[in-house]
């Protein structure tokens, strides 16, 4: 059985795993506050331009956003199942599930990219680059500025999450995790769940009127 290294500040592996997981939760809390600043900004501008925002949301392509929602939710399930498989002692299944998660994550980025292309063609760009004649209001400009910042930041997180998942797959391949000790795997997938949860909030804000 592979055993992870015990840091000399810990008295046993259990304490080390616990500390790692707790640290991850604190980090995720910090990440949520990063997005919360954007949510607050969104709320303020939406209350300032309610009609413009509703119009912009109606013009946004619901199908892309919803397809991405399904992709991310399913990928999150796969990531959770990957941990479950490791607990059951089936590392090959874990690897397969992680690969599925990664493929779905890539799919998310592809769809997001396609949607970005549509927006670029329409001219629904942020700030002073905005030139979509169909929706010439300040509110729509605000909406799309926020849309780009929020989804852009989220896409960065998706990319980071994919890197983490790729690294986890490598570790699984090397047999670094065991039935008892797979704190790293749990933490990495936790991060993927955060990426998913953020999208669950972004989806209604940006696509549902």
């Amino acid at each position: 059985m592979p055993k992870p290294l015990l840091g000399e500040q810990y008295s046993d592996l259990e304490q080390q795993d616990g500390a790692l997981q707790f640290g991850m939760w604190v980090f995720l809390g910090s990440e949520l506050l990063l997005f919360s600043a954007l949510f607050a900004l969104y709320a303020s501008y939406r209350s300032m331009y309610p009609a413009d925002f509703e119009q912009a949301i109606r013009h946004n392509t619901l199908v892309y956003g919803t397809a991405n929602l399904y992709l991310l939710l399913t990928s999150s399930l796969c990531a959770a199942l990957a941990v479950w498989a490791m607990r059951r002692g089936r590392p090959r299944l874990t690897l397969g599930l992680l690969a599925t998660t990664i493929v779905m994550g890539l799919g998310f980025l592809v769809i997001k990219g396609a949607e970005y292309l549509v927006h670029i063609r329409e001219g629904a760009l942020p700030g002073r680059y905005y030139h979509w004649h169909e929706l010439p209001s300040f509110g729509a400009n605000r909406f799309y500025s926020l849309y780009w910042v929020m989804t852009g930041l989220h896409a960065l997180h998706v990319t980071a999450g994919l890197c983490v998942l790729g690294w986890l797959s490598l570790r699984v391949m090397k047999g670094a995790y065991s039935v008892e000790h797979h704190a790293g795997l749990e933490m990495g997938t936790l991060y993927w769940h955060l990426v998913d949860i953020v999208w669950i909030f972004l989806w209604p804000l940006l696509y549902l009127s």
């Binding site: 910090s30 506050l33 919360s36 954007l38 942020p126 700030g127 002073r128 400009n141 500025s145 910042v149």
Partner: peptide, 23 residues
């Protein structure tokens, strides 16, 4: 809890100043 919000605020100012996002 507070530093990420600062990061966001400064990031947005950077986008405003550097890219003309005008948030």
């Amino acid at each position: 809890l507070a530093t990420p919000v600062l990061g966001m605020a400064l990031g947005l100012i950077g986008l405003d100043h550097g890219l003309g996002l005008g948030l």
